[in-house]
Each structure stands twice: as C-alpha cells, then as structure tokens.
Design a protein around this nucleic acid. Structure first.
Lengths: 219, 219
DNA sequence: TATTTATTTGAACGATCGTTAAAAATAGTG
DNA sequence: CACTATTTTTAACGATCGTTCAAATAAATA
C-alpha cells in the first residue's frame, strides 16, 4: 500500500509553478467528484475534464486512484486538525474547558469551513463523511482524523474521570455522525421539517443536542 | 423512472416456487453487495456469482440496476416501519409516551434486527445508511422511510408543542445518524476506545445520548 | 545555447461494466 | 400429451473504466 513511497523517484528539481497549478486543479476536481459520487462513482476521466487537463495528467499528479483519494483527503486534514487542536489548547490555557467548549472547538471549524470556506471546502466536508462511514478507508481515518479525535476524547475523559472509555468514544462518534449529517442529510432535515433550515441556527441546535447527549451518556 | 411500472408486462401465471427462490437468492446477494460496496461499487456479475445464478437472471428478477437497488431497499422497509409504528401505537394506547419511549420504539427494531436478525438484516442495516446519506436516493427515502419518520417527528412535537419544526426534524436526523453510526462506524468507536464494544451497552448508551440530546435541542 | 529534467500530449491496452437478445429448458394448463 | 407461459441458459453488444507508454513539448540548468 505504501510501497508507493519506496518506489517514488527522487526528483532533482522543484516542480514548476505551472505544474503546481495543474496539480491543484486536478486535486480540486478530484475533491469535488469524489465528494459528490464517492470513490467508485467518480471517474478519472471526469476529473480530467473538470480540471481542464488530459487524462494522463491525473495519474501523473495524483498517482493511482487510491493514492489520489488519499492525497485529496490528506490535503486539508492538517489544517482542520490544527485549527481544532489550537482552539482546544487555547481553551485549556484559559482554565478547565466545559463539554460545550470542547465540542465547539471540534465542530465549529468543520461547519464554518463547510458554510463559508467556498465550494472546495464544502466538497471536502462531504468527502470526510465518505471516509468516516466506510471501513474501507479506516487507514485514512487513522492517519488523518484519529489523532485529533483521540485528543478530544482525552479532554472529555478529564471531565468524566470515572467514565468507561468505550462510552466516551461512542458519544464522540455519535456527535461526529450528527455533525456530518448536516452536510450529508440536510435534504432529509428539510424534507421532514417541510421547510429549509439556515446554517447558524442548525449549528446551535447541533451543539445543544451533542452537549446534552454527551453529558447524559457519561453520567 | 417509474415508467417501469407502466411498461410492466401483465403476467398470466403466478411465479413458480423455484422462481421465487432464485429471486430471493438474487435479492439477498444484491443486498449484501450493495451494503458492502455501495451502489457503484457493487457489480451485477458479483451478485450473480454470490447468488449462484447466471448474470441474466439478475436482470430478469431485478430489472435494471437502479430498479434492483430500490427493490432491495423496499423489500424490508415495510416490516421495519410497521414494527416501529405498531410499537408507537401500543405506547400511545398506554398513555402519553415519553421521549425515551418514542426513541426506543424507533431505534430498537433497527438495532435488534441488525444484531440478531441474521446476516441479511445486518446487510440491510448497512444499506439503510447508504440511502440515508446520499441525496441521490432521496426518492427512496421519501417512499420507504419518511412516512414512519414523519409520524415519529409528529409524536415528539406533541411533547414539545411550542418547538420549531425544523429543530424537531434536525434532532431526529441527528438521532438517526447516531443510530446508523453503530453499523457504519463501530470500527471507529472501537479504534478510539482501544477495545471492542458490545451491542447491548451500546444501545443503552445511544438511547441515553439521543434522549438527552432531543430534550436539550427542543427546550 | 546545449543538455538534462519535468511535464504534457496522444493513443492505446486489457478488463470490467450494465444491458440485451435469442435459443434452450422447465413448469403449468387444457 | 400438446400447447403455452415462464424461467434459464448462452452469448454477445457497446461503453466506460483505470492504467500505461512513448513521443512531443516546456522548463530549468550548466
């Protein structure tokens, strides 16, 4: 799987500016189509068309399809995790954070970028949902998302010292699932409500829901 | 889309017993592979192989791929919805149900069948998660799951008369997402916890979580 | 500028996909 | 049994898929 890295050719020159631009166009197109159609439903040819490059360029810049998928997921994972963890560290520096604080530090960066980060971040938010619900991408979750998730689980454990670690993990995954549902199942909320919902009140509603859920599950 | 029904040939004889058996084998195989690999990742040839029939039989008994998918989802949806709604009616006959009662009536039939209903129900549980998180299958959700979901949302509304319908819908979708995560992301819970979790305590944990979440979101 | 490396282009490979059509076999009816 | 409808078998169609390779071009270095 990671034999890729061992086979990787040592490059003697830095990639040119044009090369980096086409690479970005390829990854952006892949991000959109992977997010919209899933791994199997997205074709490399459609990515090339969307990116405005030739088919072989997709392979040149992204490698095989699974490599490309990993690259696209990993590309923004660092920024997201870093923002989450920095917010968490800031909270801890100000004193013992509440469950609400911790949850907000985890959820807000995701929802904020999904809502105001532009079309690529919106696609990326959808992409995370694919990775989080398919055991096939377990290794990607472990590499990209588990480190931050573990830190947040640990912080919750501080507030509930006697709690079963399995319950903490479950409550966190429940919260992540509810959060992801705002990007994967907003259409379903609107259908059941009979009207459209706005982002801001939904985030508050989600935080109220998850905070109380975690407290109840761990008490 | 539903032109299928208008083109349907009027049959003059009831299907033979053997025909019904192969049909069941085809649908069971489709259920497993759709559940495991998603719509695009599952191939009709693999279904034929798993069912032990020839490729053309899959088309004969299931129609085109999208018809087959709908047929498989719809096959068990009635039983599940009926069980949920009957449990709900029983509760109402005994007096005003609590949020906990309502939630349990919705969640327990799903988790119980996923855990003790055999491999086909386990696959079906996974299949529901695919349908619920992909807007592509919105029409299937509307046909198969929204009726029961609407009834449950209405029952929650009785307990919180002043609540915004959008909040009720959101809280219900959050709960459904958390419920589905027990079949799609159990591996993630176990990874974060560092140990395996058992079904029974997870259901209790989920109910504690969702009950408190709904109460908090609607108060 | 000459030479080397990086990138793009163009074309094709083999494999697998969903779908269809026409025989062959089976089951049900008179 | 003869006849009809249903089901199974067999084979193939056209399309699309991911991947690869060699030639052509662009960029960077000496």
């Amino acid at each position: 799987m990671n034999a890729v890295r061992t086979q990787e050719k040592r490059r003697q020159r830095a990639p040119s500016k044009r090369s980096l631009e086409t690479r970005t166009r390829v990854l952006d197109a892949a991000e959109k189509l992977f997010a919209e159609h899933g791994f199997d439903g997205a074709s490399l040819r459609d990515m090339a068309k969307l990116a405005g490059v030739h088919l072989a360029q997709v392979n040149f810049h992204g490698g095989a399809k699974e490599e490309l998928f990993f690259t696209v997921v990993a590309r923004r994972a660092g920024e997201l995790s870093q923002l989450r963890l920095e917010t968490l560290e800031d909270l801890k520096a100000r004193g013992r954070p509440t469950v609400r604080n911790i949850l907000e530090a985890f959820i807000h960066p995701y929802l904020d970028r999904a809502a105001h980060g532009g079309p690529q971040w919106l696609a990326y938010a959808r992409l995370i949902a694919h990775v989080s619900t398919d055991i096939r991408w377990r290794h990607i979750s472990e590499a990209c998302f588990d480190p931050a998730a573990t830190a947040f689980a640990g912080e919750i454990a501080v507030l509930y010292p006697g709690s079963d670690h399995r319950k903490i993990a479950a409550a966190l995954v429940f919260s992540v699932s509810a959060m992801l549902s705002l990007t994967t199942a907003r259409w379903r909320i609107d259908a059941l409500a009979g009207s459209q919902s706005d982002d801001i009140s939904m985030e508050d509603c989600l935080l109220d829901y998850c905070e109380a859920g975690i407290r109840a599950a761990l008490s």
